[in-house]
């Protein structure tokens, strides 16, 4: 900020280097996604396979849908300067609630969906209240919630339970052309979140609270309310993901959420998408890109039949490198 003769020039003088660094993280992630697709296609082709078949594209979408929905919710929480570690256990719980309530009956679908939404909203409310009223850090508050849910679920279930009717399973498996219904659901959730952040007061305030809680407070934002609402939305997203997984499995399962690693994976996808872990900066578009990137990587490795340890190493590297690139970019801009 020093020594720029900004006003005299009429327009802020932007050195060429700074302009280069001003690439939006969202663009970075989509460029990386495109690059991964191309490289993946080449690698698979060299290996003698065919990468961009309808089958793989459908597979990528289906793999990403559940994580994508959770990550959208996680994006909201992280943007508000919070985070949610309870989503994985909540997903398991919601899959069980859905399957038990529906109990295989077509007539039970509405009740099952309603029950899941209610349970997840309640969990989000508790998370939000503990964070804002009891002043417990989000990390600990949601970790505590996660353990409580785990305890309850482990006590009541030791394997898959309940069942969802065939008509509900179509949510997990049907597709319209090359687009699975589950991907459409994910797209709808992402679009709704994008709209919320961009066009509603709550959205603007989520950015404000995450950017600087004190600034937000002094500007008249009821910061506690924003954090609570954000957690409710985040948990409801996890609930929707639980419904989707129940539709896939045909039943509820006490480990479906943790097996998918949806807690840390969703945070990784959000950060990979360029949302600042400290909050206030980023958005849903980046998260969608982050989720897709992880799914494409998975798909490439699967086709190449690479061993899964190597896969994890690459995923870890990608996440760390991405965040380092964003940090560099930001530092460059401050000079």
């Amino acid at each position: 900020m020093n020594g720029q003769s900004l006003k005299q020039a009429g327009r802020p003088a932007r050195p060429a280097v700074a302009a280069l660094r001003e690439i939006d993280p969202t663009k970075v992630i989509y460029l990386a996604l495109a690059a991964t697709l191309v490289i993946g296609w080449v690698l698979v082709a060299v290996d003698g396979g065919d990468f961009l078949t309808v089958e793989t594209i459908v597979g990528i979408q289906q793999r990403s849908a559940a994580l994508g929905i959770v990550a959208v919710g996680q994006t909201l929480a992280i943007l508000a300067g919070s985070l949610d570690l309870s989503v994985a256990y909540l997903i398991s719980l919601c899959s069980l609630v859905a399957a038990e309530t529906m109990a295989g009956r077509d007539g039970g679908i509405a009740a099952g969906v309603a029950a899941v939404l209610a349970v997840s909203a309640l969990v989000g409310l508790v998370n939000g209240m503990v964070i804002t009223r009891l002043r417990v850090h989000a990390f600990i508050a949601t970790l505590g919630t996660a353990l409580i849910i785990k305890g309850v679920v482990d006590h009541l279930y030791d394997g898959p339970a309940g069942s969802v009717p065939d008509s509900f399973q179509r949510l997990g498996y049907d597709r319209i052309g090359p687009v699975p219904v589950s991907a459409l659901l994910w797209a709808a959730v992402a679009a709704a979140a994008w709209f919320l952040l961009r066009r509603t007061r709550l959205g603007h305030r989520i950015y404000a609270v995450g950017g600087d809680e004190e600034v937000a407070r002094l500007s008249g934002v009821r910061t506690d309310r924003v954090v609570v609402l954000t957690h409710v939305l985040c948990s409801v997203c996890a609930g929707v993901a639980g419904l989707l997984l129940a539709a896939r499995l045909g039943a509820g399962a006490p480990t479906v959420g943790t097996d998918g690693g949806y807690d840390l994976e969703s945070i990784a996808a959000v950060v990979l998408g360029g949302t600042a872990l400290a909050g206030g900066k980023g958005g849903v578009a980046g998260t969608v890109g982050g989720v897709l990137l992880l799914a494409v990587l998975d798909s490439v490795f699967n086709q190449l039949e690479v061993n899964s340890f190597f896969k994890d190493v690459v995923r870890g590297l990608v996440i760390v490198i991405a965040v380092a690139v964003y940090a560099r970019r930001r530092k460059g801009r401050q000079i």
């Binding site: 603007h204 950015y207 404000a208 950017g211 206030g280």
Partner: peptide, 14 residues
């Protein structure tokens, strides 16, 4: 808020 636009800052909370 450094990461928000001028207009968003001016009308923050309102």
């Amino acid at each position: 808020l450094p990461d928000r636009s001028v207009a968003e800052n001016v009308f923050l909370g309102r």
